[in-house]
Amino acid sequence: MANPAKIFETIGRRTVAGLDEMGYAAAIFFEAIYWTLAGWRYRQPVRVTATFAAMMQFGVAALPIATLLAATIGLMLAIQSLYSLGLFGAEHYAYIGIALSVVREFSPMIMGILIAGRSGSAIAAKLATMSINQEVDALQVMGINPVRFLVSPVLIALVLMMPCLAMWANLVSILAAGLYVSAELNQSFGAYLNDTIEVLKTGDVWHGLGKATLFGIIIALVGVINGSMVQGGAEGVGKVTTRSVVISITLIVVADMIFAYMTTQ
């Protein structure tokens, strides 16, 4: 156990396994795109109904909780900004910090974490259960490509819904923050909104939405990969579900940092 060589060996093996998983994820990603574009050639298009169902499940059904979270984040930012800027007597510039951090950071990140917990786990659990029941094998022997049937709709749905959710979160957060700030500072709400729109550039909005899309891809792939790696019975399903949430959230935070670094250089 305490043998250092063993520890390095373990780390080495884990790294190789991790790279393996990344290769696998890339393969699945390209295969899902391939089937989306070329499925009709095999008379197996990605089903619109399945994609819509996934969009409802991952996006629309998440709206209530997404709204609640976004509003809370908006309020939290407003309270913090007023407090910290108040130390310098600069409360009236609160809108700048709020607008930029909501649009560039908080909306995509919070929505990413929410959907990773809510849908990433569901994707992993569903796929894991299907693998254990040999449902994936059954698809394969029927000549129904499992990536086309199970992965493509999920990937498309998340890629489309994540930016929508982030955009929605932008609106809700900024409105909630605006209500608080204008009430505290005895300022008109309209003026607050004007200032906010003034300070936000389209580039900031795209930055946030781009990240949200990337997070959607991460959540879909991590869920799918973990679900398909399941071993054992019901216990295995629980394990891969938890694992997929932990990994998605970690990757989202890391990707967020890298994205921020690269786009501000």
Binding site: Y42, T129, M130, N133, E135, A138, V141, M142, G143, N145
Partner: peptide, 23 residues
């Protein structure tokens, strides 16, 4: 080829030990 394999699979049927019905 991929296409021919799909075609072939349409012409065979498999029933798994535990059914593998979509739950």
């Amino acid at each position: 080829s991929r296409m021919q394999l799909l075609d072939l699979k349409r012409r065979i049927g498999v029933a798994f030990q535990f059914g593998a019905l979509f739950s």
